[in-house]
Nucleic acid binder design. Structure first.
Lengths: 224, 224, 224, 224
DNA sequence: TATGAATGAGATTTCATTCAT
DNA sequence: TATGAATGAAATCTCATTCAT
């Protein structure tokens, strides 16, 4: 749950504040969608306002500017992904399974029409101060993935590999989906997430396991 | 080798034409580098001109505009990648090896300081007419990769998989490298290309082979 | 009365819409005056903005660009002229009188500081789509004049002539006035209109009438 | 015959000078044609160079710049027209006939593919110094026409009229032909000139003559 | 003479942001 | 809160003119 700075604990929101927060979330959704479709630089505040069915001026009542919109989009996405990463780690499952969960959560977060945001892909567009905060969060997330990989290697569940490079390869494969995925296409976000996880995990699974890992869904969707 | 339309065979260029072509190539290099660093929309003609040590106006002497610069960057990259793809296919080697070659070539093409260009990642920024041509080339390239995968599956060299999705996963992992790679970092483009190829191929290699595929370079760089 | 498309009947304009329409009209007046003085190509948006006492940027809030300004100038003028043409035809008067009325209205429309616009003289500066619409209106207007001439010939009120060429000669004589007329000169627009009408009609009037048609105003302006 | 300043009498031109003068004339023709087609401001030096089959740079070898090209176009046209005006006056014919001759010459000069130029229609585009010279010539020409009219009135050959306004009406009707005339249309420049002269003279012819003046060509072109 | 590369000023246009209402 | 008019800076692009060759 993202929280906007309002000087009160979440429980003590007044009605007006709750309404404002709801409006902020709507705007962020519109911004997120537009950034994903056209990229940050090519997106105008007017586009965002139009997507949110608001006038351009009012956006500045809720956010400081275009940069802050990008910042919050990235911040929310990274928070959700980080949450999923930590949940996976706490599960105590084998590294392959943890990795699978993280991948699935990442893809769903990206492709989910309502909350997702590919906006974290454009860190460089942020002004220095905001960029520093996002870069820190992003690096923490990447580091978490690297640790997950390293732990799996150490336990013999994953083959020895350059964790940094593999993490980036995985993130590239995942983030790229925001570019080519079409909501009206044949696959659902869950399908995509699942298939990506199978492939990307198989490349790391050690020895005996590998042979057993199929890249085909065992059960086609919608069939008993 | 990219060739600009000048109505003569490459061998018959006059001195002036050769100089003009050289200038065009310089400009494209500058454009390519700038697009990669800041993205198409955030790149100004001034940036490109500055990188090429020219005045902004003269760029229009050699190219019709910013869009054409993007177009040629994309066109050149895709041509080189397509060439590599066909060379791999003609080699008659096992699918795993063919795939490895294509991946390596793709990454080297992207990260090569002199000629590389990640610009084909921004097809949507092109005006309709130019976009159609690039999309056609890009689709042909993607299809080539899917065919390579499918052939490998049929020969039993690769595990059964959704070729479309796997191709996109691979391309995402590769293209992403243009974002994070730093020429002054610890790894050379060749290192990155090799490591990505190992990981991405291992996830597809069938049966017995898989176990033998290591993700670590057999020989660390610079060590006897 | 020109009307901008706003989805309501003119009577139902809100205050804001009325203000916006008034602004649009102001801008068109400024544009019209500047086009007439310097020609379309030599007129800058800055000139127009300066004449309208606005910043250049805001012009794009009300119009899509310089071309649209030219288009509306031409459209308004042609509408007014067409109206006058039809009114003259409906009057049922002799052809000479009808022609005189059309000429007077045309000149007044051109020279009237408030609403006039010689801008329809530069049809070729318009982009194809807008040009087509203006050309159609202009051709309809010219055709109307040709018909008026032809009808007069048939009734014996005008001498036999090449209606196409005479219509163009008349329009040339009229349109040219926008070039040489100076509001601070000795003649009023009405004077000019009247004198032009006398001369241009006399050249067509048949037989007996001609001798009676004087080219001198019967009563100098301002004299008892 | 226009003469470029070259410091010698026309008879003493060297071969090189003769060639240069021929080149100047070619360039002026190209400029004239382009100005007529697109207007001064919308015409680029590149357009002129292309029409003359030359490189843009060389134009500056023969002329000081775009303005000078316009100046010479106007200068040449006005000289030819002035010559025709004086020849008409010297002829001693009736005013109606003199006027007819002047009109015909004016139109032929405008529409002549080889030497004609509508460029004198854009006096305001000239820099002050050149403009002053052209304005003087133009005013002298207009004055000549006014005198011709006034003389005709005094001799009773023309009806009493406001010579200034009628002169402008005539010039408008004539100059306008440069806008609408198409060389590939049904009428030749001579046809147009003749028809315009008939109409414009008839409006001024006094008494008895008027009735006899037909606006139809007595003999259709190409028929015995 | 002749070319065409090069420049610099200025054109139209866009757009994040502010502000009066 | 909310609107949309308004601004000013900057973007892309054009073009007359100059200059090296």
């Amino acid at each position: 749950m993202v929280q906007f700075p309002n000087g009160r604990s979440n429980g003590g929101l007044t009605g007006a504040e709750r309404r404002a927060d709801a409006r902020r979330t709507e705007i962020l959704r519109a911004a997120s969608r537009t950034f994903r479709e056209k990229g940050f630089a090519a997106t105008g505040m007017r586009d965002i306002a139009a997507h949110a069915d608001l006038s351009p001026g009012i956006l500045y009542h809720y956010f400081r500017g275009k940069h802050e919109l990008l910042y919050f989009c990235q911040d929310r996405s990274l928070d959700r992904m980080q949450d999923a990463l930590e949940a996976a780690r706490r599960s105590g499952e084998p590294a392959t399974e943890q990795l699978r969960r993280v991948i699935v959560a990442h893809v769903l977060c990206l492709l989910d029409e309502l909350e997702g945001s590919a906006a974290h892909l454009e860190v460089d567009a942020l002004p220095a101060k905001l960029r520093a905060r996002i870069v820190e969060k992003r690096d923490r997330y990447e580091q978490g993935i690297r640790r997950l990989l390293a732990a799996g290697v150490q336990k013999g569940e994953l083959v020895d590999c350059d964790a940094t490079l593999v993490a980036r390869a995985i993130l590239g494969a995942l983030n790229w989906s925001a570019r080519w995925f079409r909501p009206d296409g044949p696959s659902s976000p869950a399908d995509v997430a699942d298939a990506l996880a199978r492939y990307l995990v198989r490349g790391l699974a050690s020895g005996a396991q590998t042979r057993k890992l199929s890249l085909k869904s065992p059960m086609p969707r919608g069939v008993a």
